[in-house]
Simulated scan of single mutants.
Amino acid sequence: MQKKERTLLLVLLIGILLAGSVYLYGGQDDLQAAQGVVLDQEPAQQPAQAAGKIKVHVKGAVNSPGVYQLPAGSRVIDAIEAAGGSKAGAQLDEINLAQALTDGGQVSVPDQPAEGKQAADQQSAAQAGKINLNTATLDQLDTLPGIGTIRAQAILDHRQSHGRFFQVDDLKQVSGLSAKLIDGLRDKVYVE
């Protein structure tokens, strides 16, 4: 009986080894499939970044803010151009236009500061239709009320000999101009 028991034990051992190897190697594919690893198949479609594309959010002083898909390796300037370019007053010198972009990044183009923009708007509105004392010609100065050709020439002579005007009140230094006449010119002239 000992020989029968050995044979039975040997058959049982070979059966266990076969079952174990089937479980081990046959179950390996199931385990890898559960972990997302697939053997002997083409790779799944990768996200846009692997395909050489990135997505970037562009906001601020651009003509068409939004999310844009760009080629990998793009720079900040490329993102701004994709967003329709920068608006007037955009402070491009405040950002690094050559900086490389990354997928999921953001480009924020700063606008002119509110107080600076407001001051510039007020200045251009205030100067509309006015004459700049530092660039005005004899004919332009002659059109001002109470000036005439002689006083216009005096303003030009003063500007040539003393340099530019820094404020409208500097007209007080010009011979022949009264304080009352200068006050009447304040809404018609400016200094820049």
Rank of each mutant, 00 (worst) to 15 (best):
V109L: 06
L17S: 07
S124A: 08
R151H: 02
Y68R: 02
A33L: 15
V109N: 02
I182H: 05
Q32H: 13
D29S: 13
G84C: 09
N132R: 07
V109C: 08
V38L: 12
G15A: 09
I150N: 10
S178E: 01
D142I: 00
V174S: 12
A48T: 08
I95A: 00
Q69H: 01
A19N: 09
G148V: 07
I150C: 01
T137R: 03
A51F: 03
R6Y: 09
L70M: 04
G184A: 10
A61F: 02
L92G: 08
L141N: 07
L8G: 11
G176Q: 11
L31Y: 14
T102C: 09
D157W: 03
G184R: 10
G146Q: 04
Q46N: 11
A154F: 05
A82P: 05
K59I: 06
V58P: 05
G84T: 06
S178Q: 01
L97H: 03
V109I: 13
G60C: 05
R186N: 00
Q106A: 13
A50S: 15
S108P: 07
V67I: 13
I150S: 12
S108H: 08
Q28V: 05
G20W: 07
Q49S: 14
A136K: 01
V37Q: 15
G15H: 00
D30F: 10
L24Q: 11
K172D: 12
N63Q: 11
I131C: 01
P71F: 08
G60K: 00
R159Y: 01
I182E: 00
E115I: 14
I131P: 05
G163R: 07
F166W: 09
S21N: 12
K172E: 14
L101Q: 06
Q140S: 06
Q41W: 02
V22K: 07
I95S: 05
Q99I: 11
V107E: 02
L185F: 12
P43T: 12
K53R: 12
S74T: 13
L156A: 00
D40V: 12
I131H: 02
L138Q: 15
L101A: 08
G129W: 04
L18W: 04
L185A: 05
L9E: 12
Q91F: 08
N96V: 06
S74H: 11
V189N: 02
Q160G: 03
G52M: 06
G129K: 07
L8N: 13
A88C: 04
K55T: 14
A152V: 05
A114G: 10
S175F: 08
V67K: 02
I147A: 04
